[in-house]
């Protein structure tokens, strides 16, 4: 594990994720945000050692709360719990592939929406039609964000040299080559 590249790569990917998530607005046709920060945190959960992944979760959650006007520790706690769930499911999600990342982020986006509403004591919103519609929108938003986020993070890892692609014939998962 090389701290000299882990830290700047992590900072850069989270900054880009925060920028994209902040710039792309929620519209009437799509009233939720694309959760690029959550996707970046999930990518770190699948490919990084435990302390790096937890730090990524805290930073991604902190940025989401700070830029979204949410109470402190709302999203960092969620992402840390999500990391624990991902590690428990590691035997299913063997590598940080695009498909796994996309599906995982879609599920995480819906769970994050529910968590945020609960944290804000907005329980009454669960039972309104508008809220159920918004919850439904979180799944395609998560799919988009997961696909783009995992693709971008994988690209940055390869460009920075943190991960070296391995031929499939070796039977070694590419995410395991540089732990």
């Amino acid at each position: 594990m090389r701290v000299d590249m882990q830290l700047p790569v992590l900072a850069f990917t989270l900054l880009m994720a925060a920028l994209m998530q902040d710039l792309i607005p929620a519209t009437a046709a799509f009233p939720v945000k694309l959760v690029f920060l959550t996707a970046a945190a999930l990518y770190a959960a699948l490919t990084r050692p435990v302390w790096v992944a937890l730090t990524a979760a805290v930073w991604a959650g902190g940025l989401t709360d700070a830029l979204g006007g949410l109470p402190p520790l709302c999203t960092p706690l969620f992402l840390m719990l999500l990391y624990g769930a991902v590690r428990l499911l590691q035997r299913v999600f063997l590598e940080a592939g695009l498909l796994q990342g996309t599906l995982l982020t879609a599920a995480a986006a819906a769970a994050q929406w529910l968590w945020t509403r609960l944290w804000l004591h907005d329980g009454a919103a669960f039972f309104s039609l508008d809220s159920l519609k918004a919850l439904g929108y979180t799944v395609p938003a998560g799919l988009l964000a997961g696909f783009a986020g995992f693709a971008f993070c994988g690209l940055i890892d390869r460009l920075s040299g943190l991960v070296t692609p391995v031929k499939e014939g070796h039977g070694i998962l590419w995410a395991e080559t540089d732990r």
């Binding site: 902040d22 929620a26 940025l63 989401t64 709360d65 830029l67 979204g68 006007g69 945020t116």
Partner: peptide, 14 residues
């Protein structure tokens, strides 16, 4: 600069 922040929970603009 942007609308709704990163969470789109509040009606706000930056």
């Amino acid at each position: 600069l942007s609308r709704g922040g990163t969470a789109a929970v509040w009606q706000s603009v930056r």
